[in-house]
Simulated scan of single mutants.
Amino acid sequence: MNQAYTTLIIDDEPPARARLYQLLENFPETFRVVDEVKNGIEAVEKINQLQPDVIFLDIEMPGWNGFEVLERLDKIPIVIFCTAFDQYSLKAFETNSIDYLLKPVRLERLQQTVEKLTTFKNNLSMATIKSVLKAFYEQKEEKKMTSITVKKGDKLIFIKLDEVSHFEADEKYVTVYTNKENHLIEQSLSHLEIKLPQAFIRVHRSVILNKNQVLDVQKYFNSRFVITLNNNRKTSITSGRSYNMTIKDWMDI
């Protein structure tokens, strides 16, 4: 590297920002801090404005958390997550564009990040963000999601997830299907993909299905699959090409 990485510190706690800034001063040839911000809204504005090479990003912040910040960016830089939640499974953060530091950040661990930076790439995808986010919340949530809430007028209906065959998006709406009926819900498919338990898998940009409700899977052309559900309608779903590897991993083929 010929010059230092332009660097942005994002943390809602002033002491944490000050400590990290002080530690980064030990690596003047690696990091050049261009600014500090204290919340997610400011972070999105500053990242899009300054286009830093590297961001040190707190995960839990008021308003938008670290993941919600990334989802709103025009271009995603190299990300070093900072978190105090050491009980979570942080191995999921170790990708070619993400690293993590446990608070309080220690100089020795930051040195490891410096050594790893040469292997990082500025090509963090939304798919990677979602996989990390899903792993994070699966570890964070002590109570697994077992039902989904549907509004019916002034009433709230709770549908058990094991009764759901699939979710399907159509323009602005998402429909949840069970053997008995179907309902429109307000949550987006992307939000559901993150929060739903492991029994659910996204097989198309507009479909998430319950793996426990699958009757059979057949290969289709162009690296796609036709998946038949074991519901009353024997619903047939054709997967999207970009979900080929996801489905293969699920079926272990």
Rank of each mutant, 00 (worst) to 15 (best):
L20R: 02
I59H: 08
L101E: 01
D58H: 12
C82F: 00
T30V: 14
E71G: 12
D86G: 13
I98Q: 05
Y88M: 12
V69A: 06
Q22F: 09
M61T: 11
S89T: 07
R32I: 00
P62N: 12
V37M: 05
S89I: 05
G63P: 05
K38H: 03
D74K: 15
C82E: 00
N48L: 10
E94M: 15
W64P: 01
E68F: 08
E29H: 15
D53V: 12
G40W: 01
F67Q: 08
F81T: 02
A43E: 02
A84P: 01
L20M: 06
G63N: 10
E45G: 09
V79G: 11
D53M: 10
N65K: 11
V34K: 06
T83G: 06
N26T: 11
R32A: 02
E29L: 15
N65V: 09
K38Q: 06
V44W: 01
F93Q: 04
N48P: 04
E60V: 14
D35P: 06
Y88K: 05
M61C: 13
K91A: 06
T83Q: 01
Q49H: 06
R32W: 00
E60Y: 03
N48D: 10
I98P: 00
F93K: 07
L70M: 15
L57G: 04
P52W: 03
Y21L: 14
L20P: 00
E60M: 11
F81C: 05
L57R: 08
T30M: 05
F93W: 00
I55C: 08
D74E: 15
R72C: 08
E94G: 08
C82T: 14
E68R: 15
N48C: 08
E94P: 04
E94L: 15
S89Y: 02
D35L: 13
P62T: 08
A92Y: 09
T95R: 11
W64D: 01
I76W: 02
G40C: 09
L57F: 01
D86K: 15
R32D: 00
F56G: 10
L23P: 02
K75V: 07
A92C: 11
V37T: 11
F81M: 04
A92Q: 10
E45C: 12
N26L: 13
L57N: 04
D58S: 14
V37Y: 00
P52F: 04
A43K: 06
F93M: 13
L70K: 10
N39V: 06
